[in-house]
Design a protein around this nucleic acid. Structure first.
Length: 645
RNA sequence: GCCGAUUUAGCUCAGUCCGGUAGAGCAACCGCUUCGUAAGCGGUAGGUCAUCAGUUCGAAUCUGAUAAUCGGCACCA
C-alpha cells in the first residue's frame, strides 16, 4: 500500500497504481468533476496518472493559477485539431504555452490570415463543447514513426526522433484527434472554457533555425475567466497607447524617413530630452572619476581586423572604400578607439583603474526586420566606458559600476531590476583559461549582488565574443522588460592591441578591460522612458516644461512677461497667445502632454500671479508668479543636482 | 534576412473587389469672435494616390519589381 497525504495533512492508504481521479471520486463525485489535474509532491500531472509511491496530493481546480498553463496548452491542442479539421493536409508541429498565451506552428502552403480566425474559433468552440476527455497513451517509437509517416506528418516524425531514449513517448488523444505531447493536460477539452482568443498570425522558423523551413504560426491566449481575458486585452491596448512611435509624433520628438532606415531625425524637443540625459550621465560619471573622450567615426579596416570585429561582425558593419582603394568602416563599437587612447603614452599601475568614457555614436547594419522605432536602430549613441584595470581590481570596479547603475535607474523611476550573467558563446576569441578567469570574476559580483536581495540569473552561451557580461534588465510601469546596462570583462582586446602598463616591479603587464554602459543606447533608453511614463515625463526630463496660455488679448503683455521670467529661471517654456479659446488651448496642450500650463488672464495680470494646471489633473492652483517659478524650478532640477543641494 | 500585412493631404482614414482621372474629419491658412481651464463660427488652400516598369483608349484601382513601415521569426558584438 502507498500513503497519500492530503493538503489538510490527513493521510490515507491506497493500493499502488491508484489514479488521482479514483481518489477524488472516492471523496466526492463533485470534487472529481471539478478537478482538472493534480499536483503530486508539487508536480502538476494528469489526474488519470497512476500514483505508484507515497506522495502529497493536491487537486488542481480550473481556477488554480497552476491550471492556467494547462488551459492554454489544451487550447493549443484544440486549435491544432480545429485547423486540421478546416484545412486537411495541414501539418502540425509544436504548440507550447508562452508568457501571455500559447501558439501553434503549422506547415501549410497557404499561410493563415486573421480573417480565418472567426472560422477557427468557431470550430474550437465546437470541439470544446464536445468535451472529449484527454487520454494519454505511451507508444513505441516505431509505432509513432509509422503512424505519423502514414499521416504525412513529417515534422512530428522528426520530433519523435528527437525525444531522448529514456523518456516515454506520450500521445494525448482528445476524441478522434491525437498529438505527440509531453503533457500534462486537463481531464477534458470542455475544461478550457470560453475565455480564449486567437491574437495574430506570423511566420516562424522550424525549430527556431533560420536555415529551416518557415512555418505558419497562430498566436492565441486563454484565461480561466472572461474578465481576465478582457483585462489582458485592455493591457495590450494600454501598451499601444504608450507606443513611443506614436507618442513621439504627438510630442514632436523625432521622425524617420525612407532615405535613412533605422536612423533618427531628432526634432528640437526630442534633442532637448536627449541632451538632458547626456548631461545627467556626464555629471554622474564625472563624479565617479571617469574621463570623457571622443574617438573617430571612421577607421581603417586593419584596426577592425586586429580587434576581431572584421572576422566576427563584418556583415553588420557599414564599410566604405575610398577613391584610393582604402577600406574603412564606421565604428560599430567604441572599444578599439579607447584602447588606442590608453596605448598613447606610457601607463603605470598608478594610473589604474583608468576609466575612459565616451558618448559614442556607433553604426551597426542591423537586419531590416530588426528595426523598431527608436528602440532598435542602425545608428545610436552609447554611454560607453572602458575601465582599464588589474585583475585584482575587477571585482571592486564591477561593484562600483553596479552601484552607479542602480542609483541611476532609481533616478529615472526604475526600481525593479534584474541582473543576469551571460557566459561564453560558441563564437568567441581567447583561450578557455582566460574565459574561466573572466567568468569567475563576474560570478563573484553576481553572488555579491544577489546577497543584497537583487534578482539574478545566468544565461549560458550569451556572452560577447570577447568576454562574459553582466546584463541589467529593468521592468517598466506596465511590466515589460528592457535590457539596458551591461558590464563586460575582457581579457582579450587589450592583448590583441598590445596594450600594457608598467607594474610595480617594472615589468610590462596587460590590463584587463571592463566594458560598461548604463543607459546602453541613449536612443533606446529615450524610447523606454517615453513608454514607461506614457509620454508624461517628469518635469526635469520634459523638453517642454510649461506653456503660458492667455485667456484674452488683454493678458498678452503680461503673458509675454511670464514667458520671459520663466525662461530666465531656466525653464523650457513656450507661449500660446493665439486667438483661441482657453478650452481649446487646454485641450491641445493636454494632448501634447505638456506637464504644466500657466494660464493668465485679466485677474492674473492684475495680481502678478499665474493659474497652474498640471497634466493629468483638472485642478487649478493660483500662485504668485515668483513663488510659482521657484517651485517649478526646484521640481525641474535633476535628482543628482538636488541631492548635491 | 525570412513569413505575412500595409503604404491615398501634416495626422486619422474612405475610395481598390467591379479601371473612367480623388473624398471626409482634425490640423494649417484667412476672416469674424475676446471667450476663465479638454474642440466658438465661417471661408480658403492643400494630394504626380510610396517608387519604377507593364497591361489598357484610359490605372489610386489590374500585373511585376523595388523601397519603407507594421506584426512575428531569426539576429542584437
Amino acid at each position: 500500500m502507498i500513503s497519500v497525504t492530503f493538503p489538510d495533512g490527513a493521510q490515507r492508504l491506497f493500493s499502488p497504481g491508484v489514479s488521482g481521479l479514483e481518489i477524488a471520486r472516492g471523496i466526492s463525485p463533485s470534487l472529481a468533476k471539478r478537478t482538472v489535474a493534480m499536483a503530486l509532491d508539487g508536480v502538476v500531472s494528469d489526474l488519470a496518472d497512476p500514483i505508484t509511491k507515497d506522495a502529497k496530493i493536491e487537486f488542481v481546480m480550473r481556477e488554480d493559477p497552476r491550471a492556467l498553463e494547462l488551459i492554454r496548452h489544451d487550447c493549443a491542442h484544440v486549435l491544432a485539431e480545429a485547423v486540421q479539421a478546416l484545412w486537411p493536409g495541414t501539418q502540425v508541429t509544436i504548440g507550447p504555452v508562452i508568457e501571455n498565451g500559447f501558439y501553434y506552428d503549422f506547415a501549410r502552403s497557404e499561410p493563415f490570415t486573421p480573417e480565418d480566425f472567426a472560422a477557427i474559433e468557431k470550430k474550437m468552440r465546437e470541439l470544446i463543447a464536445r468535451d472529449a476527455p484527454f487520454t494519454k497513451e505511451v507508444w513505441s517509437r516505431a509505432d509513432a514513426i509509422s503512424f505519423f509517416e502514414k499521416k504525412g506528418e513529417a515534422f512530428k516524425v522528426e520530433l519523435v526522433g528527437m525525444i531522448p531514449a529514456d523518456q516515454d513517448l506520450k500521445i494525448y488523444k482528445q476524441g478522434e484527434w491525437l498529438d505527440l505531447c509531453r503533457g500534462p493536460h486537463m481531464t477534458s477539452t470542455g475544461k478550457i472554457g470560453a475565455a480564449f482568443k486567437l491574437m495574430k498570425v506570423a511566420g516562424a522558423y522550424w525549430r527556431g533555425d533560420s536555415n529551416k523551413p518557415m512555418l505558419s504560426r497562430i498566436y492565441g491566449t486563454a484565461f480561466a475567466k472572461q474578465e481576465e481575458l478582457d483585462a489582458y486585452i485592455k493591457q495590450i491596448e494600454e501598451a499601444e497607447r504608450r507606443d513611443h512611435r506614436r507618442l513621439a509624433r504627438e510630442m514632436d520628438l523625432f521622425h524617420f524617413q525612407e532615405e535613412g532606415p533605422g536612423t533618427v531625425f531628432w526634432h528640437p524637443k526630442g534633442w532637448t530630452l536627449f541632451q538632458t540625459l547626456i548631461n545627467y550621465m556626464r555629471r554622474r560619471q564625472q563624479a565617479e572619476g571617469y574621463i570623457e573622450v571622443n574617438t573617430p567615426q571612421v577607421l581603417d579596416r586593419a584596426l577592425w581586423e586586429t580587434s576581431g570585429h572584421w572576422q566576427t561582425y563584418r556583415e553588420n558593419m557599414f564599410v566604405t572604400t575610398t577613391e584610393d582603394e582604402r577600406v574603412f568602416a564606421l565604428k560599430p563599437m567604441n572599444c578599439p578607439g579607447h584602447v588606442q587612447i590608453f596605448k598613447n603614452g606610457l601607463k603605470s599601475y598608478r594610473d589604474l583603474p583608468m576609466k575612459i568614457a565616451e558618448f559614442g555614436i556607433v553604426h551597426r547594419y542591423e537586419p531590416s526586420g530588426a528595426l523598431h522605432g527608436i528602440m532598435r536602430v542602425r545608428a545610436f549613441t552609447q554611454d560607453d566606458a572602458h575601465i582599464f584595470c588589474t585583475e585584482d581590481q575587477i571585482m571592486e570596479e564591477a561593484m562600483k559600476v553596479n552601484d552607479l547603475i542602480m542609483s541611476i535607474y532609481e533616478d529615472f523611476g526604475f526600481t525593479d531590476v534584474v541582473m543576469k550573467l551571460s557566459l561564453r558563446p560558441e563564437k568567441r576569441v581567447g583561450s578557455d583559461e582566460v574565459w574561466d578567469k573572466a567568468e569567475a570574476a563576474l560570478k563573484r559580483v553576481l553572488d555579491k549582488v544577489a546577497e543584497t536581495g537583487m534578482k539574478t540569473g545566468i544565461n549560458p552561451g550569451e556572452g560577447a565574443f570577447y568576454g562574459p557580461k553582466l546584463e541589467y534588465t529593468l521592468r517598466d510601469a506596465i511590466g515589460r522588460e528592457w535590457q539596458c546596462g551591461t558590464t563586460q570583462v575582457d581579457f582579450n582586446l587589450p592583448a590583441r592591441f598590445g596594450a600594457f602598463y608598467i607594474g610595480d616591479t617594472s615589468e610590462k603587464l596587460t590590463p584587463v578591460m571592463i566594458h560598461r554602459a548604463m543607459f546602453g543606447s541613449l536612443e533606446r533608453f529615450t524610447g523606454i522612458l517615453i513608454e514607461h511614463y506614457a509620454g508624461a515625463l517628469p518635469l526635469w526630463l520634459s523638453p517642454l516644461q510649461a506653456v503660458v496660455a492667455t485667456i484674452t488679448r488683454d493678458a498678452d503683455d503680461y503673458g509675454r512677461g511670464v514667458i520671459a521670467a520663466a525662461r530666465k529661471a531656466g525653464l523650457h517654456v513656450e507661449g500660446d497667445l493665439r486667438n483661441e479659446t482657453i478650452n481649446y488651448k487646454v485641450r491641445e496642450h493636454s494632448l501634447a502632454k505638456v506637464p504644466v500650463m500657466l494660464v493668465v488672464g485679466k485677474k492674473e495680470a492684475e495680481t502678478k500671479s499665474v493659474s497652474i494646471r498640471r497634466f493629468g489633473s483638472q485642478a487649478q492652483v493660483s500662485m504668485g508668479l515668483a513663488e510659482a517659478l521657484a517651485a517649478l524650478k526646484d521640481e525641474a532640477t535633476a535628482p543628482d543636482l538636488k541631492r548635491a543641494g
